[in-house]
Computed example of a mutant assay.
Amino acid sequence: MLSRRSVLAASAALLAGTAGAADGRLRFGVIADPQYAEAPPNLTLGRYYANSLDKMRAAVAALNGEDLRFVVTLGDIIDRDVASYDKILPIYRTLRHETRFVLGNHDFDLAPEHLERVPGLLGMAAPYYDFAVAGIRFVVLDGNDVSLFAPPPDDPRRKLAAERLEQAKAAGLVNAKPWNGSLGDAQFAWLERSLHAAREAGERVVVLNHYPVAPDNPHNLWDASRLTGLLARQPHVLAYFNGHNHAGNYAERDGIHYVNFHGMVDTPDSSAFAVVEITGDRLEIQGFGREPSRSLTLKPA
């Protein structure tokens, strides 16, 4: 498992890197939904869970050849079973870059006694957090906060999740699905404070979450409109990156690029991951495998 010591060591080594320091470029890797499990494929969904180990090894080899500040996985590192972490996390440890994680719904498809262990298994001090690199503040959200599966069985957030899901169904929302989630009020207040602090510090912001919020989609966060409404009022927010919808997606709204990265687990042998570069007024995404490349213009700071 990833230890705090290994993450800090990787961070120190990266201080000497060029991807985001002297030349104003920031480059980092993005992976979405490896969803590994030692299980037969789901042919209906086109998900080949066991194949993700070899795909991850190939992705690590490619990303290790790049000059990057970090590599982030946008959730669903595993598909099920806590033992799956023991197989895929050693591959992450072969990355020469700092490793960051976002929590996904399948990361909590575990026996109840393991649910509260998940952030620690991934070396995360908290389920949601932020960090700054080269003048960009990355705000990492936990869309599983209020859900039917991530909180322990007796946690009041489960009751709140059931109420929110019923409200979404009553409203006829296309994303009223039990596999989605939402932000708790404490996390939403933290997000508002983090965005304000970034603006005060003159930092631009990229938001990272497992769940999409735009465009409308069955996979979106239950409270997507609350989140997009907040982000629309933030002139320093550049982009929102997510996974969860394995088919990928894209929208531009209020000058913010909402990029849904493709799932690595899909198809027997075609992978999906990316290298992202932010420089000046450009957001460049170099896609590998099924991930498309994009060249996007950023709004003025």
Rank of each mutant, 00 (worst) to 15 (best):
V133W: 09
S271M: 06
P268L: 06
V60Q: 03
G243F: 03
L148T: 12
V206C: 09
A32S: 12
G202A: 13
I77W: 00
L2V: 15
Y250W: 06
G172C: 01
G202R: 10
V146N: 09
F101V: 03
D86Y: 00
R80S: 11
L26W: 01
R47W: 00
N105F: 04
R226N: 11
G289W: 03
R4T: 13
L173W: 02
I78Y: 02
D109S: 14
L2E: 14
A12G: 14
L160M: 14
A134E: 10
H210N: 13
L141K: 11
P235L: 07
V207P: 10
T44S: 07
N105D: 14
A61Y: 01
F188Q: 07
P119C: 12
Y85P: 03
A37C: 02
R294W: 05
A186C: 00
P41G: 04
V30R: 04
E277M: 12
Q35M: 05
A16K: 05
V205C: 09
D266A: 10
G123P: 04
P218Q: 07
A224F: 02
D86E: 11
L115H: 06
N175M: 10
A189E: 15
L53K: 05
H196Q: 14
L110E: 13
H257L: 13
I88E: 05
K177Y: 00
A59V: 05
L14S: 15
A251E: 11
T228N: 06
N51W: 03
D109E: 13
H106M: 09
Q187K: 08
G172I: 10
A197P: 03
F138I: 14
L110G: 06
R4A: 15
S84T: 04
L95Q: 05
Q187G: 09
Y211K: 06
K87V: 03
Y211D: 08
P235Y: 04
G24C: 03
G65N: 10
L165S: 06
S52Y: 01
I78D: 02
P300L: 12
V118G: 06
S225M: 11
A39N: 01
P119R: 09
A186Y: 01
P34Q: 07
A9I: 11
T279H: 07
R158E: 07
H246C: 04
G229T: 12
L221V: 11
